[in-house]
Design a protein around this nucleic acid. Structure first.
Lengths: 137, 137
DNA sequence: GTTATTGCAAACAATTTGCACCCAC
DNA sequence: GTGGGTGCAAATTGTTTGCAATAAC
């Protein structure tokens, strides 16, 4: 699970973003995160939050997924990201177990949820981008 | 893998959207899809494409995932959706095998790709929404 | 004919960018 | 002091919505 990259070289605000994500311990939109942070840092701009989140993503410290509404939800990479999501109402219920292919069928019954499809995606940096990243550190 | 729901009751354009997705056989944005369809149906509006895709999703015929850029990419549910995605350049390379937890580690070496995290998500309808959907058919 | 679907254009919302200012080192 | 980080406001971009015109059955 090594997430080395460069945990160092974090901006003051980037640290705070990370800390807040840790404190809230649930996926949150950039806008909501901004609102939270602003309670403590009234002058914090929304753009800074977006910029910070982007950098934290590239560093491998933060992940994001898209809500059914289209907006992005952010959380620490340590946080589990297995959900049962309703395409209609958008409700996401977390899953406790780490799933596999055929698990979909089981879910269909046990959870009284009609499973249409699931997605699995690995995120990170391809080697060209990674090297480019290393160079910058 | 039953996707019954209501394969029937598809609009002319919805059929065409589905047909085009099948023909292209690769995830595509709504805007690009609109451009493609317009070559044949010059009067087709962008909104119709979005509305059609939404309905096809609720029916379980189409799936979508978010590109790193934030825009939504659509494809048929039959299409595999396992990718290796670079957070920086946005490149998505399809995976042939259906993955599991620890696979991430293997990927890290074999693909010369630095895996930060992965996401797995099941999509469908929760029972309230499903019943509501059934009623409409 | 009645009802659902569409095109168009305007409206929205999330995110990004330009730039002057400011802080850290 | 200098370069990166930041606030602010404006600009973009993907997506949605209102409504009159149209097509489907």
């Amino acid at each position: 699970m090594s997430q080395s990259s460069s945990t160092d070289r974090l901006t003051h605000y980037q640290e705070q973003i990370l800390a807040t994500l840790k404190r809230l311990d649930a996926p949150i939109s950039a806008q909501d995160l901004h609102a939270h942070l602003r309670q403590v840092q009234p002058r914090l701009g929304l753009a800074t939050v977006y910029r910070g989140l982007e950098i934290l993503k590239i560093k491998g410290l933060v992940q994001s997924r898209a809500a059914v509404t289209g907006e992005a939800l952010y959380s620490r990479v340590e946080q589990d990201q297995h959900y049962l999501t309703c395409l209609q109402c958008g409700t996401s219920t977390p899953l406790t177990l780490c799933p596999v292919q055929e698990m979909a069928n089981q879910l269909q019954q046990s959870k009284s949820f009609k499973v249409y499809y699931h997605t699995l995606e690995f995120f990170g940096l391809c080697s060209p981008c990674w090297e480019q990243q290393e160079a910058k550190s």
